[in-house]
Simulated assay, not measured.
Amino acid sequence: MHQPDTSPLRVFIDPVKITKKGQGYSVSFNGEIIITNTRNPSGDACRHLVALGYRGRMEMWDNERPHPRMVFRDIERAARLKVAENERHGPRIVRFDPMTEGLRERLAASREIGPCATQFQ
């Protein structure tokens, strides 16, 4: 009997640019860059893979550690979250709001201050 593949999806992150707002990362999956620059690689990778139809577990790796940086048991659940931090609060997990993200992108474009931190290809 054929068993479904239950091995986790593996994404790899690489630092690409650091700004006053923080470190940006590129995200690769199956040898291809799927996100060019994001400050939230875990949540953005989950949302991207869910949009492509993937489900299940995901591991986020870098080139420094011999183990995953993070493991997600359910990328559909993780896709609804993001890491947020600012001057008053350190990193914390909050609900992802696509309307807020879209507004930030439009404001950035209208002010010509460059692209949003999350740049999907």
Rank of each mutant, 00 (worst) to 15 (best):
G90C: 06
R95G: 06
Q23H: 13
R69M: 12
N63H: 14
P15V: 13
K17D: 14
A45H: 03
G22N: 02
E87A: 15
I18G: 04
C116W: 08
L107H: 08
P41F: 04
L81G: 05
R95A: 09
P91D: 04
D97H: 09
A108V: 08
G90I: 13
V27I: 04
V16D: 00
R57P: 14
W61I: 12
C116S: 13
P15Q: 04
Q119P: 03
R73Q: 09
E32W: 04
A78K: 07
R95L: 08
G53C: 06
A79N: 12
A79T: 14
G24H: 13
N40W: 02
T19P: 06
V16P: 02
D97A: 07
H48F: 09
R95S: 12
K17V: 15
E64A: 10
A79H: 03
A117F: 09
F120D: 07
G114K: 06
E105L: 01
A45C: 02
A79K: 04
G102P: 00
P15H: 08
V11A: 06
P8L: 06
L52R: 15
R65L: 13
I18M: 02
K82A: 09
H2D: 10
I35Y: 04
N86A: 13
R10G: 00
F72G: 03
R77F: 00
E87T: 15
M70S: 14
M60N: 05
R39N: 05
R10E: 09
F72Y: 04
P8N: 08
G56E: 01
R69V: 11
D62A: 07
V83S: 12
S28P: 00
D14F: 07
R10T: 08
R111A: 12
E85S: 14
G53I: 10
G114Y: 05
R10K: 15
R39P: 01
Q119E: 12
I93L: 13
I35H: 01
D97N: 15
H67F: 10
V11F: 00
R47F: 01
D74M: 00
C46M: 06
L9N: 03
R55G: 05
M58C: 10
G102T: 11
F96G: 04
D44G: 05
R95Q: 13
R39C: 01
L49R: 05
L9G: 06
L49I: 06
R104D: 11
S28G: 08
R73L: 10
F12E: 01
R57W: 04
Q121R: 13
K20I: 14
T6R: 09
E76R: 15
I34W: 02
